[in-house]
Design a protein around this nucleic acid. Sequence first.
DNA 1: CTGAAAGCGCTTACAG
DNA 2: CTGAAAGCGCTTACAG
Lengths: 337, 337
Amino acid sequence: MTIKDIARLSGYSLGTVSRVLNNHPDVSQAARERVMAVVQEQGFEPNTNARHLKLQAQSAIAVLVKGSQNLLFAGILERIQSLLQDSEEEVYVAYLDEDADEVQYAVQLVKLRRPKGFLFLGGDLECFRREFHQITVPCVLLTNDAQSLGFGNLSSFTTDDTAAAGAVIEYLYRHGHRRIGVLGGNLASEQISLKRLRGVQNTMQRLGLPFDARSQHVPCRFSMAEGYAAARRLLEREPELTALFALGDVIALGAMRAIYDLGLRVPEDISIVGYDGINETRFCIPRLTTIRQDAAQLAARGVQTLLQAIHYKHPPVYETIDFALLEHESVGSVEPQ
Amino acid sequence: MTIKDIARLSGYSLGTVSRVLNNHPDVSQAARERVMAVVQEQGFEPNTNARHLKLQAQSAIAVLVKGSQNLLFAGILERIQSLLQDSEEEVYVAYLDEDADEVQYAVQLVKLRRPKGFLFLGGDLECFRREFHQITVPCVLLTNDAQSLGFGNLSSFTTDDTAAAGAVIEYLYRHGHRRIGVLGGNLASEQISLKRLRGVQNTMQRLGLPFDARSQHVPCRFSMAEGYAAARRLLEREPELTALFALGDVIALGAMRAIYDLGLRVPEDISIVGYDGINETRFCIPRLTTIRQDAAQLAARGVQTLLQAIHYKHPPVYETIDFALLEHESVGSVEPQ
DNA sequence: CTGAAAGCGCTTACAG
DNA sequence: CTGAAAGCGCTTACAG
């Protein structure tokens, strides 16, 4: 079943059928009705390959997700899918490893599938700096700030990671904590974790707290298993810590179990704060105090901006999405020494 | 940059370039080398739209995931992605609502994108029975059994849900539990939850335990929030229950928090068993006793079978993948009355 | 082994 | 408002 069959069946020419299908204004009402009737009756769907070939058109919107176990991204992705479905865009999703080079992957994808735009869930600025110039379609980076890169086709929406991490440290400080350990992140690359760590260091310094990253910080990937191991290592090595800041909720969830297995209690013996605000934090015992990133907002602004940039040329936008510190049950007060 | 440019640059004709690109045997070594050199030098990638149009070819393998919050599926999906990446297949992933009609979606996708095969993560047999005849490409259904449907192009790999649910009830019985509540699932449609529920009922009957689904079972979707609400409702209504069986781990995680909020302890006051064996069950407090579905095995056999069916015609296979009851910390013993 | 040519299914100036 | 025709980039019988 092709457009040719529809033409024959409807008594109109190829061209007219195509125009009806594409909602061209210059078609008579009669032709429109007749053709649509045949299309309906036959359940005809135009061949996308031919259409794209002719239009030199790009196909779907590609979403590159860094880290398949990242539950924050899962939540954002769910909303993106639903928003793009509403606007009838095709979506192509790929999961990459947490430490993969997402821009390199995107460059490959451009050659292979010609997506009309990219949505990056997570991204390493270093990769963008190195290879992003090869990409010319509109792109949006979520949960990291692309302003410093200055690419004309790359917008970004992110939480202010440095401020949020600072807010966590201040919050712990107000509750009397002076010896705070930090879990997670990767110092080798310019990922979001670096900014959070910078927020920690700045704020510690401002509050006059000593912070020796070598002893008080254990890097790890964003998983419960690594959070568990990192917390154990840190607490065994530095038993005088009264609070932990995990740079991701999943790390915190693993850490909470590690604390329990060390015979300690949250928050009586050790306080802990997470980052992201995923669902799980509202159901674990105790509920996890955490920084909530606004997944709905990130998804909505990201999709909206990408679609606009695809349809009309727009300068890039860089927006900061508000975060909130959700005070749950995992932080206790201690007497500052 | 098209094949025409490569022809010009290499001094060979269009046809020869195409033959080189497609690894046809009837090309001289000289032509092959010269053409490949130019292709390399120019970084040429053939246009997929044109190629597919000409070949009438299907494109990617489509993976339809039922329920974006399903962490078991997330684990299976991660493995599928990596396996298909190794075999250089393109993957198209779509998340559907837990209660969506996945077969209807697949039928749409066939018209739109002509995938060369489908991998269904979760599926409602009723939908398959009604509409699957419209799909002719090879398909694999994971976590449900398609044998009873008898479609020649639909294989399936699943845990024996009825047996696994039965094993849970027996396990609780051996620990003295006689009054057992069940959380989750949807009785309206022929989803996997129905089989688990049947396993519960059969085994209860065999053990001589009364089971009144109307009072002892609260259906809910597979999320922590719904698990929380369902558990609260059930325990407030039936305070004499000593154990809960949640038909999914996420439901169990929500339920554990509900139990805590009711002032009860797991497993001292209430025992609870989950289903799926997701990562979280190894880190929550207490660790959740659960049925482990073998995600690695499901993914591996599913992908392998689908690829074979795509490349050579094969009769469908229906396999049962072994489950395991992971005895963790959420079940206690009680004195049977 | 290679080139010239047809055709996959569609869109869109160009005429009328 | 409509039809005839060119052409998007590729593959593959068909000749030679």
